[in-house]
Nucleic acid binder design. Structure first.
Length: 195
DNA sequence: CCCTGATTCGC
DNA sequence: GCGAATCAGG
């Protein structure tokens, strides 16, 4: 694979969007995150806009030759500060926490997450398991989610009482075992259960 | 251990 | 120019 104009464009766009190098690499395919990072540096867009105003063009002449007294170890690193999807209070759900087919947590521009077929029926054990699991949830924030962490939302997004499960997700699935069990229910299964 | 970006250096 | 290996950090 080579850096065609199109691929570079995708790289630029995603990098600007705050996507991580590994995410970009996966999107492009045929390259590693190292390749992406390397390219990013060669393109000279290493620091992403922290959300606020940033200088467009670089002042070529620096007045300060040596502004750093520290001998080593100092890292002038700019925080990414990814776009945070402010929780636009939808419907302040009461204490009634029973999200059945709720499957679409706010994931940072992730993949479509195709629906998985499942011959699962929601069992009392599964429900109990979920309750239990949610007590032990890692309580991750949006930014801490990865492809292998459960993205099941817990709590009320309109309050601080909100986080994501964060337990290890099943390979290829967005949720942990317990949450997959209640998330993916075929219509038929639900109907049958309503007996 | 999972992940992040930064840097180096042989190719 | 490229990117694997490595580094430095969360």
């Amino acid at each position: 694979m080579s850096w065609t104009d199109e691929r570079v464009e995708t790289l630029k766009r995603m990098w600007a969007e705050g996507q991580s190098a590994s995410q970009i690499a996966k999107e492009l395919g045929g390259v590693t995150r190292n390749a992406v990072i390397g390219k990013v540096h060669r393109l000279g867009l290493s620091n992403r806009a922290p959300g606020g105003r940033e200088d467009e063009d670089e002042a070529p002449v620096a007045a300060k030759p040596e502004p750093k007294p520290e001998p080593a170890g100092t890292t002038a690193r700019a925080e990414p500060a990814p776009p945070r999807p402010a929780p636009e209070r939808p419907v302040a759900a009461p204490s009634n926490v029973t999200p059945l087919p709720v499957r679409k947590p706010i994931v940072p521009a992730g993949q479509p997450l195709p629906p998985q077929p499942s011959a699962n029926e929601i069992s009392p054990e599964a429900l109990a398991s979920v309750r239990e699991v949610e007590k032990r949830a890692r309580r991750l924030t949006l930014m801490e989610l990865t492809e292998r962490t459960c993205k099941w939302p817990i709590g009320d997004p309109a309050t601080d009482d909100f986080w994501f499960c964060g337990l290890p997700s099943l390979p290829g699935k967005p949720y942990c075992e317990a949450h997959v069990g209640v998330a993916f229910q075929p219509m038929s299964a639900r109907r049958d259960r309503r007996r």
